[in-house]
Amino acid sequence: MTTRQQQILSAIVEQYAEVAAPVGSSLLAKVFGVSSATIRAEMAELEHLGYIMQPHTSAGRVPTDKGYRLYVNNLGKEEETPSENRGERALTARVSGGGLPERTIRNAVDTLVELTHNLGLATIGPQLYMSGLSNLFGQPEFMSGAQVQQVARLLDNLEPWLYEAAPNQPLNVYIGQENPIGRSAGCSLIISRFRSSYSDHSYIGVLGPTRQSYRDVMTLVRHAGEALEGALYE
């Protein structure tokens, strides 16, 4: 895969996250300063490799789970910016002024919900706190009654899975079909493990559509875990 193909894939992922509509070659041609024909040829190759696909209803392309995975893996190779962004500062403020551990974790989840427009979740001892379901059903991908049953099953499975699987990385990203608790639900689960007075395997994160602003959301979830560990782990 060429550097330009990787850049085009990144542009498709980011544009699709923003506008929730398939991305066409004419827009990308303007972004990259090349002809539409050149972009179409690159997109055909990306489609052949399985990183993007063409929905039946549109001439544009959307990322596949494989495309998202490559994009997320490449994000992991980027150097972190040393300064906090606005969202991170908001999280830090809400966590540091939280008071009791339970209140602090709830504050962090509620802040993540506000900032990412996903369903937020965290373990508080043996309990799972969740907030912001309406964000999930506000997304075009989830605007159907059929999704209700899938999401209900997914949330039922989430708590036991967290305790059984106990993901161990500081940041864990499960995209679409990789999602161990609901492979067909079209969801991505992004969770951070942190140590707290409750457990060394405490979790905070978000659940949302695979169409995510992964760069921002991963940064915020990672920061939420770090801020909670700083506030709650002695």
């Binding site: 912001g132 309406s134 999401v151 949330l155």
Partner: peptide, 29 residues
């Protein structure tokens, strides 16, 4: 049922908790 799911409190948070919201939608269906 859906209006209750999207209902917000004065802080802008969902009034219904996720599990209650899902149960409310299933009951309505």
């Amino acid at each position: 049922a859906w209006a209750e799911v999207f209902d917000k409190n004065e802080k802008g948070a969902d009034v219904l908790e996720p599990n209650h919201a899902l149960a409310r939608l299933s009951e309505a269906a």
